[in-house]
């Protein structure tokens, strides 16, 4: 199936007092309609910066290179006006803390109707009807009453539903969700994840789900990218990734998650810490923490190796079994 988003060799650098600091170092991936692509990684892995660069939401001090193709256009080359047109209309985004993305001084109804009136040229009456329908679509009870309420009057779960309703207002082809349930309680998280998957099935939009929670990945994703220190180190279908992970980092990540269903599950932590963004990387960025590192890992960055279709890992261990996959990064 044709992809709706195609990212090639994305690099993002931040200008700081200590010079240019790379946050994303050559990420390539694609998203197809109706699929959930999950980007997993720990803090500092570059997963959120990747998503912000897709939306043109990077701060002034950042520079993005490479190509991001969406609807036959390269998003990295759009000007401010063109990007605004696309945001909400073609691509929408929801964040971890809905309270910071909702405007506290406007009612829920106003904030829902605004994109409809701007992007879809609806009259006030049409927009009102559509807004109520959207609230009902995200299963908010008493939708008409909610239209008049302010964000602070709603619970965390309700606010995230409102954010999703706003994000869906202009029927985007791609929804980017950055840790959408991290701030929510587990019973509410279950509701919101089910809602996102259900809406995706109904509308056929593609979803990029950014998370650090391997449980959330397993239950919602179709395909997964694992990021480490700004690079995509492994990419695979969700079943393959959990059952046959190739990269030692992916393996370590999976073994670090305590198992709710088994108290005797052996917990294997990864020693050490992720390199800071400014640190000079020589060889494979994971080699100082890797159990299986060999001489080569210290000096040469591994290219990606492919293991069958749709499974690539950027690790020298795959050199014999896998096929060289071109580029310096998995995708």
């Amino acid at each position: 199936m044709e992809s709706i988003l195609q990212v090639d060799n994305l690099e993002v650098c931040f200008r700081t007092a200590h010079g240019e600091v790379p946050a994303v170092r050559g990420a390539s991936f694609s998203v197809r309609p109706g699929e959930v692509l999950s980007i997993v990684g720990e803090s500092g892995s570059g997963k959120s910066v990747t998503s912000l660069s897709l939306m043109g939401l990077l701060p002034e001090s950042a520079r993005a290179m490479g190509s991001v193709r969406f609807d036959d256009r390269d998003l990295l080359r759009l000007n401010g006006e063109e990007m605004r047109e696309l945001r909400g209309n073609g691509i929408s985004m929801i964040f971890q803390e809905p309270m910071t993305s909702l405007n506290p001084v406007f009612t829920v109804g106003f904030q829902l109707m605004e994109p409809l009136r701007i992007h879809r040229d609806q009259s006030k009456k049409e927009a009102y009807r559509e807004a109520v329908r959207l609230l009902e679509q995200v299963e908010i009870p008493e939708a008409k009453k909610r239209m008049e309420q302010f964000p602070h009057e709603l619970s965390g779960g309700m606010r995230q539903r409102v954010m999703i309703a706003i994000a869906l207002a202009c029927r985007p082809k791609l929804l980017i969700a950055d840790e959408p349930t991290t701030a929510l309680d587990v019973t509410i998280q279950a509701q919101i994840l089910d809602l996102i998957v259900d809406l995706k099935d109904r509308t056929g939009m593609g979803v990029i789900l950014i998370t650090h929670d391997m449980g959330v990945v397993a239950e919602t994703a179709d395909r997964v990218l694992v990021m480490y220190a700004g690079r995509v180190v492994e990419a695979a279908g969700v079943e393959t990734l959990f059952h046959e992970p190739k990269h030692p980092y992916t393996q370590g990540l999976l073994q670090s998650v305590p198992n709710v269903d088994d108290s005797l599950y052996p917990l294997n932590s990864i020693p050490g810490y992720m390199p800071k963004p400014g640190e000079i990387q020589r060889g494979c960025p994971f080699h100082p923490r890797c159990r299986e590192a060999v001489e080569k890992c210290r000096d040469h960055h591994p290219p990606s190796f492919a293991f069958g279709t749709e499974h690539v890992a950027s690790c020298w261990l795959g050199e014999e079994e896998g096929e060289a996959h071109g580029g310096s990064s998995a995708g």
Binding site: P141, S155, G157, M158, D185, V186, T187, I188, Q189, A190, Q191, L193, D194, D213, M214, G215, V216, V217, A218, E219, T220, A221, V238, E239, L241, F242, H243, L254, V257, N259, V260, D261
Partner: peptide
């Protein structure tokens, strides 16, 4: 217990979905 996402893909569990908010 049923609401916790498990790191096991492909297993669709029957969740007890709680209605409403805290």
């Amino acid at each position: 217990l049923s609401a916790i996402p498990r790191p096991v893909p492909g297993k669709k569990r029957e969740r007890i979905l709680l209605k409403g908010d805290l």
